[in-house]
Nucleic acid binder design. Structure first.
Lengths: 379, 379
DNA sequence: TCCCGAAGTTCGATTTAAATG
DNA sequence: GCATTTAAATCGAACTTCGGG
């Protein structure tokens, strides 16, 4: 029942002559099995092997006995096609670039997992790059990714220095791209963002419904695109409920690229608020990191959270659930956002393969209020 | 001063005939510039171009004028070599696989950054895989990575199911591998771990020097290799200081693959300790996640940290510094560990390229006590 | 004409052996 | 032989074309 040499015809003879005799490979590598080895062992040509193994259209005509023989030969030899050869010919890399602006940001983790998981389903692999918020690094990495012929790119855009121009190369190269966390307003670059206004509205609604009227705010830095819509959400609710916003209870985070700094700034700005001596019963922080800093400052000044002051964040980064007290916050569904961005890119890749052009998609996801322990009914 | 057609000799004529006339590419892709385009424009053959651009040994003989012409032509056309072609020939991918067992673990972030940063210096790119603690996924990813001819592998080994056998394929394929966070005791797989005994010793020393004598312990799960040495460190110090360890103040984390569960278990086990009604003034948790859970439980039961009970963790994950109170802990220098592992792998790759065989390296790093706010002198 | 399979070309860069003056 | 350059082989898979039954 051996599956070799059952066809000792002209074919195997010609197959033998196709190469310089048996020059054993010099490398200490385990002598990779090539398609020709499979061809030889199965008694068919490499073309037939390729067609069968890829189940190409032509495979229709090939009888099952042939297919079986080839498949058995392949698996017996442990054949694995050389992806370099395949990619060289077919111009596909089965690879997607992932660009993060600061890996250290807790925001990244779950988004990355969503991306990874989605790519995995489609047998794509991610190349991870972290540009450390440096422009030169961004450019270098972009080049490296293009050199590797990534088929798509997902950008985790929690950063400041972007102008639209930076991604021009991508358009030139026709690489489907999606950003997470920031909309570039570019007609060729898809985006997945959270509805910041709705989130902030929900946060305010929560505080308001708990009876809070004197609310302090730490707003985001002006440079961030998230800042304006979140504040808009706050104002919308305030207006609806005839709530007055006391400008002496409003402070702004300074610009910064570093997630840890928003913690420190949250701390400092909260102390600043306390110094102003205007009473407040709740504090709404720009994001969770800021909220952590704020809670720390409140605690330091003998103010218990939530007993004496409620605090609400935004994002629901992983530590929020671990905090003591656990942080009430607005959840950005980060894993979903990663999944969505990756899906958009994958679909664009596929449709590009079928010559349709994929539409640019801008998805705005409604965030969810997560009530934990850092907010409480005003007594 | 144009650098084309200054050599209209036989060469350029032969170069013209080497290909079917100008068949414009059908693809909408931006018609990649190949080495032959550079050859044509500069008036030399592709062989010469390759030699010059790679500064190959033979480039010694090539006059500077030629080099200049070729380089100018290349940069003028914006030539970027096709890495697939190059890799196919040269069998190098400039890629390292990174395998994480659970991306969600806060332990990962900084290690990843260390790896990324180190690879970046050497123009390597990481392919990131997350096996979600599933064996099947591990195997699938390993195959995919091997298919892509990764030149090395870094494994972030914060998991349970490993037996030494799982990495056998790597040995077969001669791929330099290093693990972070766990020593496989395999003579071909390098490792970078922290000195758990020293760390636990330092933690105990800290508590002891603050005057604590009644200390509760949440030990690690038996299945983890970290568990035993940490406990050994505790016992060593206890023995040195004639400190008695009360077995009623010792509990063990159950097995689990999920980092979040150690938080929950930390919570539950602390409540369990409290129910036992044996007084303790300090608690040493297996790791930071456990410590967070413990602090939460203490707070819930009206016990203030550190006023009424000191708590110390292990790892120094990012949230530890943000916590309120900020967590005193033993820092694993995670970024350094990532850097170290990546460096080991890169060096093995290079020495493999020069036919030397690289030694397997087992590095044990001394962790550092980070005193923050969760521990305090016993009054 | 239909079915089956092989021969040969292509992808783009590197490298060896060889040719030229 | 020396300096300079190149034709041709190679890497491994995929695809196009063609021929035989």
């Amino acid at each position: 029942m051996e599956d070799s040499d059952s066809k000792p015809t002209r074919k195997s003879a010609s197959a033998k002559s196709r190469r310089v005799p048996q020059v054993p490979r010099k490398r200490s590598q385990p002598a990779a099995v090539t398609i020709r080895d499979v061809a030889e062992r199965s008694g068919f040509s490499s073309a037939t092997v390729s067609i069968v193994l890829n189940n190409a259209p032509l495979a229709r005509y090939i009888p099952d006995t042939t297919k079986g023989r080839i498949q058995r030969a392949a698996s017996h030899l442990g054949y694995r096609p050389n992806l370099f050869a395949r990619s060289l010919r077919g111009r596909r890399s089965q690879t997607v670039g992932v660009m993060v602006f600061d890996m250290t940001d807790p925001y990244c983790t779950l988004v990355l997992r969503g991306i990874e998981n989605t790519l995995y389903q489609s047998s794509f692999l991610p190349i991870l790059t972290d540009v450390h918020n440096e422009r030169s690094r961004f450019e270098r990495y972009l080049e490296m990714l293009l050199d590797r012929r990534i088929e798509g790119l997902v950008v985790l855009a929690n950063w400041l220095f972007v102008d639209i121009n930076v991604l021009a190369d991508l358009e030139k190269n026709n690489i489907p791209t999606a950003t997470v966390g920031r909309d570039l307003n570019n007609e060729n670059i898809s985006s997945v963002i959270v509805d910041n206004a709705a989130g902030a509205y929900a946060a305010m609604d929560h505080l308001h419904s708990l009876g809070h009227r004197k609310i302090a705010f730490i707003r985001g830095p002006r440079g961030l695109t998230d800042t304006e819509p979140r504040w808009r959400g706050v104002r919308t609710l305030a207006h609806e409920r005839d709530l007055e916003l006391d400008s002496r209870l409003i402070v702004d985070l300074p610009e910064s690229g570093d997630p840890f700094s928003s913690f420190e700034q949250g701390y400092k700005l909260t102390e600043e608020l306390l110094r102003r001596n205007r009473a407040f019963t709740a504090l709404m922080a720009f994001d969770d990191m800021t909220a952590f800093g704020a809670i720390r400052a409140l605690n330091k000044n003998g103010i218990r959270v939530p007993d004496q002051c409620s605090v609400i964040g935004f994002d629901d980064v992983a530590p929020a659930a671990l905090y003591s007290p656990a942080l009430t916050t607005i959840r950005q569904p980060m894993e979903l956002m990663g999944t969505t961005a990756a899906t958009i890119v994958l679909e664009a890749i596929n449709s590009g393969f079928e010559k349709k052009s994929a539409p640019t998609i801008h998805r705005k996801i409604i965030p969810e209020l997560i009530v934990r322990e850092s907010t409480r009914q005003l007594k």
